[in-house]
């Protein structure tokens, strides 16, 4: 599996570290909304198909990236820098208000 880093170009997956589900929305640090925290920590969509993910090019430029990977085929349809990233909202949007 190759991931095309927007800075470094195509690199082997061994240079990257998976940083988790890109659909998560972290509640504000002071939030006491337990449902929001529960959703952030535990709830995952686990789709069979395109999945929003966060990866780090840890063995390269060390940028954090938002990646759309197909969980059935491993096809990667988009890679972008995570900087300035507002969490993806999945089609099956669930309320994670803080």
């Amino acid at each position: 599996m190759l991931i095309t880093c927007p800075y470094c170009g195509p690199r082997d997956v061994s240079e990257f570290t998976y940083q988790g589900d890109g659909n998560r929305q972290r509640p504000a640090p002071a939030s006491q909304n337990l449902d929001a925290w529960n959703e952030y920590v535990y709830e995952r969509l686990n789709p069979a198909g395109d999945h929003n993910e966060v990866w780090q090019h840890s063995g390269g430029c060390r940028s954090h990236l938002r990646v759309v990977r197909n969980t059935l085929t491993h096809e990667i349809s988009s890679v972008a820098f995570a900087r300035g990233h507002v969490a993806h909202r999945s089609p099956a949007k669930r309320g994670t208000k803080t």
Binding site: C8, G9, R11, E15, G59, G60, C61, R62
Partner: peptide, 12 residues
């Protein structure tokens, strides 16, 4: 072509 003179790369 992919790695011209002067260019830098981060890898491992």
């Amino acid at each position: 072509v992919a790695f011209p003179v002067g260019a830098g790369r981060s890898t491992m």
